[in-house]
Simulated assay, not measured.
Amino acid sequence: MTSPAILLLPGWQNSDASHWQSRWQAVHGDRRVEQHEWMRPLRGDWSARLEEEVLAATSPVVLVAHSLGCILVAAWAAHSRNTRKVRAALLVAPGDLEREDLRQMIPGWAPITRQRLPFRALVIAATDDPYCSAERSRDMARDWGARYHDTGPGGHLNGESGLGDWPEGRQLLNELLKDE
């Protein structure tokens, strides 16, 4: 079986050097999907970039998303005709873009697409994420047909969470890929 291409989908403002996604890119050689505009993300533009990257991949892809990147995966999957190229998705700390404060900061992303994903997925979330309650994360996982993993306290599971290379996250990704 061909090794999948791991596509990293950062959230709003990209992932800084201390973020586990940046560490995975450096350590494991995963490929970041670069967006044209990180500060004022447009759902259509971000979806088009993801579509380009999926189409350019010469092997099956695995989507590894954080925060707004999770919402992107759901929106993209609802419209793409190329979801068959996706083996699985790891969706970490989805942001609740339907919350009024976040909707105003990042307009154009609500409502969150709640359609069942056409590939296996795992949502990972903390109990104390300031951008999405555990209950909302569980609801999204259920609607997307994804398994749910509760990390306990951990904040937004980003660079500020102190995860480093986040070996637990990589282990969960490897387990997701074994579940075929």
Rank of each mutant, 00 (worst) to 15 (best):
G162F: 02
H36C: 04
E52H: 11
D16I: 07
R170K: 12
W38C: 00
R40L: 13
W46G: 02
M1N: 02
D143L: 09
D16F: 09
C70V: 08
P118S: 11
N14A: 14
P10H: 11
D128W: 11
I6Q: 12
Q21A: 04
M105S: 06
D30Y: 13
E180W: 14
L173D: 01
D128V: 08
K178Q: 14
W109G: 02
T83G: 06
H79C: 13
Q13F: 10
G152S: 06
S22V: 00
Y131Q: 11
E175Y: 01
Q104S: 11
H66T: 06
L157D: 01
A74C: 07
N158M: 03
T127I: 10
Y148D: 06
P118C: 15
A141E: 08
E100T: 12
D165H: 08
P167E: 11
D139E: 15
S137W: 05
N174S: 14
P111M: 07
P41E: 06
V64C: 14
D139Q: 14
I112E: 00
W166C: 08
L68G: 07
D129T: 10
R43P: 03
E168S: 09
Q115N: 09
A48R: 14
M1A: 14
L117R: 09
R142H: 13
S133R: 11
R84K: 08
A5Q: 15
G44M: 04
H28V: 00
D165F: 10
G95A: 15
P41A: 07
Q104K: 12
D150F: 02
M105Y: 03
A110N: 01
A77W: 05
G169L: 04
R84S: 13
H28D: 08
V64T: 13
T2E: 13
N82L: 06
S80F: 04
L42Q: 15
W24P: 00
M1V: 14
P118Q: 08
Q171F: 04
A110M: 02
A89Y: 10
D128L: 06
D30H: 13
A57S: 15
Q104E: 10
G164E: 06
Q115C: 07
P167S: 13
T113C: 15
S3R: 14
P130V: 02
G69T: 05
T151I: 01
I106L: 12
G169T: 04
V27N: 15
V27Q: 15
L68P: 01
A78T: 00
A89I: 01
R49V: 09
R170M: 07
E160N: 13
R120Q: 03
Q115L: 13
I6P: 00
V33T: 02
P94Y: 03
D16K: 08
L122P: 04
Q21M: 11
